[in-house]
């Protein structure tokens, strides 16, 4: 043992410092190499989106075009095509995100901070809901909206066809977002002091008042996490858009739906246009992600 501690002391000599530095350099080199790996497809898409057709042929796919080869024409065109989709996506993503967060928080409160038998069983049903493949519900779901609920027809006086479809998307996304939001909130509520809730009960607060005055103010950070995470999830979703909206030309078509058909033509694929479209579609999620990376990561962790 004493021998070993001597050799540990020796390691502070210059020789090991150099070895240590080399190791550090290797570490950073690896990490930078990985940065290239993760960013290259995105960077290549970005430079491609501003290339003229000539520059596209004459330059490397990852190299930026020269000043003469730059055009914003594709961005302009993609923007015009996607604009209505962006609006539609916003119109259903934001309400659905808010509803998911509120309902998830309430469910988590009812299943965590009010003590009753059997809550674990109910909670398990919520959790299983996170993992259900959408394929298993998608046929009945479209059946339900198109042949049973028929919001368009029933609410025809109040809602346009487009609004009816958006409403369907809001309800659908809310329903399928509740499980993950419940899980996120419950993970926080489980760490809340049980004695604090009891103190509030003894202070005379009802279940509703405890939620409003104690639990809700304390869950503001988790609301941020849920907003960030759920916003990107709903914005990025595609299968519901494809099956509920149905057609790229529908007035309610979402951004991802329009993007999936963008730049497809008989004479071949217009890559710069697709890249520009991809960036425009990704823009809201990119902004949210880059501003709130920590909250997003926290949402992923649970």
């Amino acid at each position: 043992m004493s021998e070993r501690s001597v050799s540990v002391g020796d390691e502070t000599s210059d020789e090991t410092t150099t070895a240590f530095d080399l190791r550090r350099i290797g570490l950073y080199a690896t990490m930078l190499g990985l940065v290239v790996f993760y960013l290259l497809p995105i960077e290549s898409g970005l430079v491609t989106s501003i290339k003229t057709s000539e520059a596209l042929i004459n330059t490397q796919p990852f190299a930026p075009p020269g000043p003469a080869g730059v055009t914003l024409e594709k961005w302009q065109f993609a923007f015009d095509t996607l604009w209505s989709g962006m609006i539609n996506s916003m119109l259903f993503t934001i309400p659905a995100t808010l509803l998911c967060a509120v309902l998830g928080s309430m469910a988590a409160y009812g299943l965590t901070l009010v003590d009753w038998r059997g809550q674990v069983a109910v909670f398990a049903l919520f959790i299983a809901g996170i993992f259900i493949p959408y394929q298993a519900v998608i046929v009945p779901l479209t059946q339900f909206w198109s042949q049973y609920a028929m919001l368009e027809m029933r609410l025809g006086l109040l809602l346009s066809a487009r609004s009816a479809t958006l409403l369907e998307l809001i309800i659908t996304h809310t329903a399928y977002g509740i499980p993950i939001c419940t899980l996120l909130f419950r993970s926080q509520y489980k760490t809340m002091s049980w004695e604090m809730i009891e103190a509030a009960r003894l202070d005379g607060a009802t279940v509703w008042r405890i939620y409003k005055r104690i639990v809700l103010p304390l869950s503001i950070p988790m609301f941020a996490v849920v907003f960030i995470f759920q916003f990107t999830q709903i914005w990025n979703e595609f299968l519901f858009s494809l099956t509920i909206i149905g057609s790229v030309s529908d007035p309610a078509a979402s951004a991802t739906l329009i993007l999936s058909g963008l730049g497809e033509a008989l004479e071949g694929v217009d890559y710069p246009l697709r890249m520009a479209g991809a960036f425009i579609t990704a823009l809201p999620t990119l902004v949210v992600y880059l501003l709130f990376a920590d909250e997003f990561a926290e949402g992923v962790e649970v």
């Binding site: 990985l34 940065v35 993760y38 960013l39 497809p41 995105i42 290549s44 898409g45 990107t232 914005w235 990025n236 979703e237 595609f238 991802t256 993007l259 999936s260 697709r274 890249m275 479209g277 991809a278 960036f279 579609t281 990704a282 999620t285 990119l286 992600y289 990376a293 997003f296 990561a297 992923v300």
Partner: peptide, 16 residues
């Protein structure tokens, strides 16, 4: 940076 692709839609990354 490493988590960035996960924040993007599949429809977007498919284009890339």
């Amino acid at each position: 940076i490493y988590l960035l692709p996960f924040a993007l839609s599949f429809i977007v990354t498919a284009q890339f």
